[in-house]
Design a binder for these strands. Structure first.
Length: 265
DNA sequence: CTATAGACCTGACGGC
DNA sequence: TGCCGTCAGGTCTATA
């Protein structure tokens, strides 16, 4: 499902379409997607901004009204000028004055929160890697407090918000760090490499339009391209792009984890 | 506090 | 063709 780069691309695409435009009508096909608030309270309101915090999408509307969304495994927002070719698995439709915003979600794990004058739906979301306060020193402090395997630590949204299962494996490969290494045993040079890898991998993935597996679609209905550049994720048994040794797959915290035993120590 | 398994869902794929 | 098990980009909750 969407991780930081995919969510960032969705926000960028939607910003051009929805900001400054009014929601005329909302159609809810699957009510349990709405986790809190009154969905109809957004009707007649204008979107004033859209941005991202970790993997959450934050839609800002007039009158201090916020709509938040988390896409979980299979959610996405699609933009259509009209519904002549309606996609499947549409759970919520937002009719704007200039087109239609669709919330699509196959497995229906995602959610939408409508919040008026209140706090966001998350509690204790970790630092976003693109926040200027995300520094090597800060990362060292975060990881120094955990003894769990570093792969699980960087997946923990309470520490860093945005990395998911694909990019966690990719980042550790780029940093040359073994996923099972205890988080608090990392030395300063490794933390620095890890910080650098997080920024490089995420930035590159964002520019590539994110990663597309199965039928994930960006808001323009298209796929990302980063799957072509993955170095370890879902490449078990295939040769490491650096040393040629077959990529290993293990299960860590019930999540598939991929790495090269030679390049990651 | 940690660590683990299960739950929430739908669909694609491989094996028999 | 069909049935069954496994797996999937995430996160929350219950249990030991």
């Amino acid at each position: 499902m969407p991780e930081l780069p995919e969510v960032e691309n969705i926000c960028r695409m939607l910003r051009e379409k929805i900001v400054g435009h009014v929601i005329n009508k909302t159609l809810v096909h699957l009510p349990r997607i709405i986790r809190s608030g009154d969905i109809n309270s957004i009707n007649g309101r204008k979107f004033t901004d859209i941005y991202r915090r970790g993997k959450y999408i934050c839609f800002e509307l007039e009158n201090d009204l916020m709509m938040y969304s988390h896409l979980r495994m299979t959610g996405t927002f699609l933009w259509k000028n009209d519904l002549s070719e309606a996609p499947t698995h549409i759970r919520i439709e937002f009719e704007l004055d200039n087109g239609v915003l669709l919330y699509r979600d196959i497995r229906t794990f995602g959610g939408i929160w409508i919040i008026k004058d209140g706090s966001p739906p998350w509690k204790e979301l970790g630092i976003d890697p693109f926040d200027s306060e995300f520094t090597v020193k800060g990362l060292r402090t975060l990881l120094g407090n955990r003894k769990q395997p570093v792969k699980q630590a960087i997946l923990d949204q309470h520490l860093i918000a945005g990395l998911g299962n694909i990019y966690a494996s990719e980042v550790l490969f780029t940093a040359g760090i073994h996923p099972l290494i205890s988080s608090n045993s990392l030395e300063k040079p490794e933390i620095k490499r890890l910080h650098n890898a997080i920024m490089t991998v995420l930035s590159t993935a964002i520019e590539a339009g994110g990663t597309t597996f199965r039928d994930f679609q960006l808001s323009n209905g298209k796929s990302g391209a980063f799957q072509e550049f993955l170095k370890v994720y879902a490449r078990n048994g295939k040769p490491c792009r650096i040393c040629g040794k077959p990529i290993e797959k293990i299960v860590l915290g019930q999540r598939s984890t991929y790495f090269c035993t030679k390049c990651q120590k």
